[in-house]
Design a binder for these strands. Structure first.
Lengths: 243, 243
DNA sequence: CGGTATGTTGACAGTGATCAAGAAAGGTGG
DNA sequence: CCACCTTTCTTGATCACTGTCAACATACCG
């Protein structure tokens, strides 16, 4: 871990881009509200007792390196976090992006198999693995939350793996539709991450991502307000590209 | 579900190819031995009480269709099972192969999002989702097994997703190394599934799979005893292709 | 033994990567 | 507020890897 900076309030983070502020600011519920919803004071107190942070990370800073001991697991409070693997030749594969409220990094291995980095300025909670396990043993709702989080992440990763043998147009359309459901899309869809991140996530070159967005715009499926701001003009047609 | 056939003994299945028999016959421990290892008679009785089957499936028969209600989850007893999604244009993506002992199909959705098919003759146990959940609520070891199974599947799916933007040679090498650790590799590595299945799993064409195997053989990294039987001659060199 | 399914190899084409140049956006300092 | 610089994005030209089409070989099965 590097570039760690303790802060007093979530408001201190995520101001790099106006659109990003809008995204995080418009969230009605706090990411950890699942504990409240469970209505179990004991569980809430138990989980919070093993919480560390939140810790603020600047964009592109590393939260955990591949190979680091898997002592902690994480939850995004604000911003976007990417989980990736970098190869010797410098190419990088981004397995997943995580949005606020998502628990990630849970593993049975002793070491993390993926690096975790801040794709935007981000605010991240830490949970000590061993402590969370012992809480889960006492509180069934905590155990359930662990299982549910892992199951959701598995489903998303499976859907992503399905994209492997599909065309560039299909991958980009899928990504845009997916993203629009995961972050608050007021009217415009603000891309919180760089095109390079999107390219590494979809297994495409940055040039192909750009060209494909242009192509979708020419077909009037989307509209490019700015490089990082897109309007989905025809969701139905975009969805048809996937089937 | 179709082509279901109740049988008395696992011996009745998996005889299609001699190599397949050798693979399944050489397993020392029974796939459900985790229950015994847990040493909890209550848990064992509880889990077995919600078991259905085993049911035998012939190669290429469908176990569950995409969109079927997710009332049951599954465990491979014998053979290889594939989980896939087929698109309108006929192309198919195989997200994962499952080997004996693996629990799969766990989901939070009401419907299965992937089809499940027998890649070889296979023997499959069924567990009623709701029943397994209530057992897990009583027996922490059962809950743990659910979480561990899901976590393992997530890790494997993540590793598979990483292969997206890598070369054909790298994908095939990765697949062969991976397979050799998952099935008993006496001296030869018997491919239990067809080249078409491998191609759909790796996002390659069947021709490219064939050509890549030929290429690896020319480089003396592997040796092709027959179309379905391969010897890994130089594991270290194969592993170097991945990094 | 013949027929079907599966695997192999070659020729060619197409999608997307690479290389290169320019444009736009964001950040910094005057 | 503007000038400058850096980063990010866009577009074009070319190339390479892999897909497609086709023919043949081999294995499997009745």
């Amino acid at each position: 871990m590097n570039e760690i900076e303790f802060i007093k309030s979530p408001k201190a983070a995520g101001k790099q881009r106006p659109s990003f502020k809008a995204v995080s600011g418009s969230r009605e519920s706090h990411p950890t509200s699942f504990i409240v919803e469970d209505g179990q004071k004991l569980a809430k107190r138990a989980v919070l007792s093993v919480r560390r942070g939140p810790i603020r990370y600047r964009r592109n800073s590393t939260i955990v390196c591949e190979g680091d001991p898997a002592d902690y697991i994480f939850m995004v409070v604000d911003g976007i976090v990417r989980r990736c693997k970098t190869f010797q030749n410098g190419t990088r594969a981004i397995v997943a992006f995580h949005t606020p409220g998502e628990l990630f990094g849970w593993t049975d291995e002793v070491k993390h198999t993926l690096s975790t980095e801040a794709a935007t300025d981000a605010l991240v909670l830490f949970f000590k693995r061993s402590a969370l396990l012992s809480v889960a043993a006492r509180e069934q709702r905590v155990a359930n939350f662990l299982l549910t989080s892992t199951t959701s992440e598995l489903r998303r990763t499976q859907e992503h793996a399905v994209l492997i043998n599909r065309s560039a147009k299909c991958r980009v359309a899928s990504f845009l539709l997916n993203l629009s459901t995961r972050i608050d899309e007021v009217s415009d869809l603000d891309l919180p991450m760089s095109h390079q991140d999107i390219a590494d996530h979809l297994g495409l070159s940055i040039e192909t991502v750009s060209r494909t967005i242009t192509e979708l715009e020419r077909a009037c499926l989307i509209e490019r307000v700015s490089a990082r701001t897109i309007v989905l003009r025809n969701r139905a047609a975009l969805a048809r590209l996937l089937s």
